[in-house]
């Protein structure tokens, strides 16, 4: 389980997170929603080791995940798909996928992961030898998630997978995320501006506002909370 306690993160002189505490049980899909600048991306980047925390703690099971490098956290089952279709456009689809499993010693298992990803996203399977910049926005997001799956993660940190996608594609991506979470027994921390879509598939929801938690609870309860509806769901 993921336990975050009093996490404080500073960007130079600006405090981005003011003592955030979050608990997520194994197998849960948690949605973090909030406006631009609420600290959502900072939260994920700190958990994956890209940003430094100023104070607080974060543990995944027995593992203290603050002050570790992203490349070591991947080896402990923590995978972060960063914001904005995080694929490498100059590489082929197959190379983007392979990249996610290069660190794995067991090449047979890595090949098995690739088969699973292709099964999950057949569109990627048809485009393995194409450059990633030839893919549509939705396909790129599938590729980014697929690359992450290549590392056989247990904790998945997803940053705005819906960014810049068409409504129909967003629905598909959200559905895949829900299916993956259940099928693979993943624990997912999903950061989203698309609050409605995220709360629909999530088990629990956390509302971040200006670096602090404004509300949290079951996703269904948050969807019905009048204050959350007015501020983040737009009705």
């Amino acid at each position: 389980m993921l336990r975050i306690k009093n996490l404080v993160v500073d960007h130079g002189a600006i405090r981005a997170l003011h003592g955030v505490s979050i608990s997520i049980e194994k197998g849960q899909l948690a949605a973090v929603i909030g406006a631009n600048g609420a600290g959502k991306t900072t939260l994920l980047r700190t958990l994956s080791g890209l940003n430094k925390a100023s104070d607080g703690s974060a543990t995944w099971g027995d593992l203290n995940i603050l002050h570790s490098k992203p490349e070591s956290l991947v080896r402990h089952g923590i995978s972060h798909v960063s914001e904005g279709k995080s694929v490498i456009p100059e590489l082929t689809v197959a190379e983007n996928l392979d990249l996610g499993a290069l660190w794995r010693r067991n090449r047979k298992e890595a090949a098995q992961s690739k088969r699973e990803v292709v099964e999950l996203f057949p569109r990627l399977g048809e485009r393995l030898s194409q450059r990633a910049d030839s893919l549509s926005g939705g396909e790129r997001q599938m590729l980014a998630i697929g690359r992450s799956m290549m590392s056989k993660p247990q904790l998945l940190l997803l940053d705005e997978p819906s960014l810049g996608l068409a409504p129909l594609v967003i629905e598909q991506i959200f559905q895949s995320i829900r299916d993956l979470t259940t099928a693979m027994g993943l624990t997912v921390l999903l950061v989203e501006q698309n609050a409605m879509g995220a709360l629909k598939i999530a088990d629990i929801g956390i509302v971040l506002n200006l670096g602090s938690i404004a509300a949290s609870g079951s996703a269904a309860a948050l969807r019905d909370d009048p204050a959350v509806r007015a501020a983040y769901l737009g009705f």
Partner: peptide
């Protein structure tokens, strides 16, 4: 091409 994505993918 993309040092950050590479690190997140486990590349040292």
């Amino acid at each position: 091409f993309a040092p950050e994505i590479s690190r997140l993918s486990g590349i040292r």
